[in-house]
Nucleic acid binder design. Sequence first.
DNA 1: GTCTATACCGCGATAGAC
DNA 2: GTCTATCGCGGTATAGAC
Lengths: 227, 227
Amino acid sequence: MTADPAAAANAQSSTSTSSTTSSSTPAEAAAPKRSRRGRPGYDRETLINRATEVFVSRGYDGTSMDTVARELGITKSAIYHHVTSKEELLHLAISRGIRALDSAVETESLRENVSALERLRLAVRASVVILIEYHHSVTLLLRVRGNSALEREALEARRKIDAKVRALVEAAIAEGGLRSDFTAGLITRLLFGMVNSITEWYRPSYPVDPDTIAEAVTTMAFQGLEA
Amino acid sequence: MTADPAAAANAQSSTSTSSTTSSSTPAEAAAPKRSRRGRPGYDRETLINRATEVFVSRGYDGTSMDTVARELGITKSAIYHHVTSKEELLHLAISRGIRALDSAVETESLRENVSALERLRLAVRASVVILIEYHHSVTLLLRVRGNSALEREALEARRKIDAKVRALVEAAIAEGGLRSDFTAGLITRLLFGMVNSITEWYRPSYPVDPDTIAEAVTTMAFQGLEA
DNA sequence: GTCTATACCGCGATAGAC
DNA sequence: GTCTATCGCGGTATAGAC
């Protein structure tokens, strides 16, 4: 909508660049961490996490800055102390998921001395795990429609990741590890359609642990559901 | 991660002059049918179909009535001649998909003299076909977040359909037709997660025909991808 | 059936006090 | 770091002419 999301992103890199961020929380999680002395207030990290959750719950376009503010118990003006625009909030929210997903797929697809089928299996597993660890961020990413320059960049990032997976599928078919009666494109889409659908229902309270989910996905995809 | 988001994004049809072109598709399709004498104008049916497409392309909340109007080549006021509100447009758009999906699953799950596994397979196939035939309507339905009473009703309708499928999965497990090492809930979610993901990338121009897609889905889900 | 014009309000964003 | 107050745009929806 507005403009120049890239500039906005750079301007803020001091706190959010890479992995050097504080403490222990693995990926997401609304860590309160009130450390300062004066007013309660929020640190940027917490604000981003909470905003991401609200965006996921109501949709980005369906969420006003006032909704985010109420969720945090502050006013919308206070949010602008931490970020310069709503779009920057979206950028911060989805870029974590993009980075995590991309590096995981990259890592697994480049493993040496392993068949393409096995690398694909590893990529699927890794994706499931990341999708759960960065649940809100990835969910938001998967819902982007391309309505702004920022959103189109996100779609482009997704396309690049998709291409890596597809190459893996193609290699696995060529090796004879995967059935060849369907195209690599169709297999890739259905396979990751299943993986990505996890975002729609997964909750930290879900009674099945992440490893079992990853196991179910790979088993179902590669061996099938029949007894 | 992905399934070709870029292609899906902003699929805006080049112009709004595409009037008297197509006409065949049974369920959706912007049937032109200019019959009256005076001004060109649109009938309600066409308006709903076109609006549904725009909602899918940019998201419901991300689409203004003015956007829909421009897509049709008329002004927003003209739209209010056909519908009373934007929300009614949403209702009309998604209810077709709900009805079609519900009756298909209902029909297949009640078939007699057929194993639960086979009924499940038929329900999956039927869902894929309907999802393609009512593509835009179902896509919109699957994206509803529950931000209004209408949206919550849609979510409730989805829940009811899900319950029918899950009962089928449970019966298939009990019969020994499906593997029992994962819960029926998890299997249902992954299975229909894969089915529903088709909405994200399917286009009438997709080089694989609907039957082959349905075949790929059932094969992958029940027999697995390995060669 | 569509138009222009307009009422009315919610949204993103800013200014300046505390 | 958050507040109140406010600006201005763009949103849904309506009135009434053609």
